[in-house]
Structures are given as C-alpha cells and as structure tokens.
C-alpha cells in the first residue's frame, strides 16, 4: 500500500499534534499558568523558545497545554456527535415512518439556525465549562452526522442481507449493530475527520470570542484572544496558536481526503 505524499505529511503532523497533546506535562518546559518572566511579549530566545505571552508566561508551554485542551475538547465533542448522530440516524432509517419523519424534521429545524449563533444563545444561560462546551458542540453537530448516517443506513437497510436478517427474526438492535454499523463505518470514519476539524475551529472560535475555555486554562483560541492586543504593536504572539489551528486542520483534512478516496475506490464508488 502506497501512501500519497500529501496524506503522509498530514498523518505525521496529526500524530505529532496528538502526541504532544497527550504528553503535554512531560514536554512543556514550564507549567501552564506560571509567570516566568517580568517582561511580557519577549521575543523568542533560548530560554523561552516562542517568547513570553501577555502576562509573562512561557508561550511555548501555553501553546502545548492549549493544544491539549483544544484537541481534547474537539475529540470528545466529535465522539459525542458521532455516537448520538449515528445511533439516531440508524434508528430513523430502521424504524422509518413517523419516528423517522419526526427526527428528520427536528434536525432540519436545528440546522436552519447557524450553529455558532445557536451555541451563543445557549451559552448565554449556561455556565461556560468544558463539559458544557463539549455537550453543546457535540449535540449541535450530531445533526450533520445524523443526516449522513441516516442516508447511508437507508441504502443499506434494503440490502438482501438485511432482509435475510429480518426474516431470520433478528431484533432491531442486531440489525443496527451487526448489519448496518459494519457496512456504514467507512463513510462515517471519513466524515469523522471533517467533523473533528469543524470542532477544532468551533471551540477555537468560541474561546476567541471569550465564550469557550475560560482563563487561566489555556486553549488555542483563548491564546489568540489573550495576545491579540500585541498585534497592533507588531508582536506576532497571537499568530502562533492561529497557525497551529490551521496546520492541524489542514493535516487532518489531507488524511480524511485520502481515507475518503481509498474507501470510495475500494467500494466501487458506493462508499
């Protein structure tokens, strides 16, 4: 199996980011919130590899811990979104009738509001904590997964082997988990990369707006916000996390593209 060069680069970067996120406490030279210098926005030096931030904390350490927070929230929200979305989507496809209608119309309704706006409305009354962010983002995004899962499952549900299982007298649980799920997995996994990127951008945007992860906890969007004032003095500290978000997103995108191409070519385009 040959991996195209773009996908390989994507894979390497993605793994690197996840590795750093998991082992952040061992990699970061300083702790997350420790003020290490009396000078703010120091330029990069051998002591502080990316310089210091707006409060004199080590920017590299903030970046590493920030990546951990961002990647953790995005991963958790993606998992929640996929579990909820695909189970409900499969259920809708298998049940059909009014249950399918009710769920699908409700999803249409949620999707008729831009998710950022809806998230802002909900966050205006909720305490802004990490679990709340994960649940709000995951549930809002599960609508998209629902649509995909339902569409895929509707196709699979009319296959002969599903008919055979039904005639054998298998229950709905069997049909969903033993017949539909294994066959729907590859399009869902390809979509997972894109949803993960969306989550990274979503949580970063919320934190950037001051409505996501709360200081002193670091996350990439929040670091941009904290250091944004430096930009007008020509200090680029806010650009590092922004670039990190962009490179992570592009890398995952490259990998997802490759998986998508592979699964569709293997399955003769049906995917």
């Amino acid at each position: 199996m040959r991996i195209p060069i773009a996908a390989l680069i994507g894979l390497i970067f993605t793994f690197a980011y996840f590795f750093v996120a998991i082992f952040a406490p061992w990699i970061a030279p300083y702790s997350m919130a420790e003020v290490v210098s009396r000078d703010v926005w120091l330029p990069p030096s051998s002591e502080f590899l990316l310089g210091t931030d707006n409060l004199g904390r080590d920017l590299l350490s903030r970046m590493i811990y920030g990546g951990r927070t961002t990647i953790f929230i995005a991963t958790a929200a993606t998992i929640l979104s996929f579990t909820t979305g695909s189970i409900l989507g499969f259920l809708a496809a298998v049940l059909g009738g009014w249950a399918d209608q009710a769920m699908s119309r409700f999803v249409d309704l949620i999707m008729s509001i831009p998710s950022l706006i809806f998230a802002l409305v909900v966050l205006s009354v909720m305490p802004v904590t990490v679990p709340v962010l994960i649940v709000v983002m995951g549930l809002l995004d599960s609508t998209r997964v629902y649509r995909l899962a339902r569409a895929v499952a509707v196709d699979i549900n009319v296959m002969d082997y599903v008919e055979a299982a039904k005639l054998r007298g298998e229950g709905r649980g069997w049909i969903i988990f033993r017949e539909i799920l294994p066959n729907a997995l590859s399009p869902l996994i390809a979509e997972m990369g894109l949803r993960f990127i969306f989550m990274v951008l979503f949580v970063s945007t919320l934190s950037f707006l001051g409505l996501g992860v709360q200081p002193p906890q670091a996350d990439w969007g929040g670091i941009v916000k904290e250091n944004a004032d430096g930009i007008v003095y020509g200090i680029g500290a806010a650009l590092y996390p922004a670039v990190a978000i962009a490179t992570l997103a592009i890398s995952v995108n490259l990998v997802a593209d490759w998986i998508l191409n592979r699964t569709t070519s293997l399955k003769g385009g049906r995917g």
Partner: peptide, 23 residues
C-alpha cells in the same frame, strides 16, 4: 480552497492586520 476551509476566520483577520495594517 483547502487551506482557507481549514483556517479560522480570525487567523486570516489577524494575519491581515499584522501585515497590511501594522507593517
């Protein structure tokens, strides 16, 4: 297109401010 889908809006905005308006 791929690049700009992966980049948050505020990154484009700050890069623009950094180079076009500050520099």
């Amino acid at each position: 297109t791929l690049a700009s889908i992966s980049v948050p809006e505020f990154l484009i905005a700050y890069v623009a401010i950094f180079f076009v308006s500050v520099r």
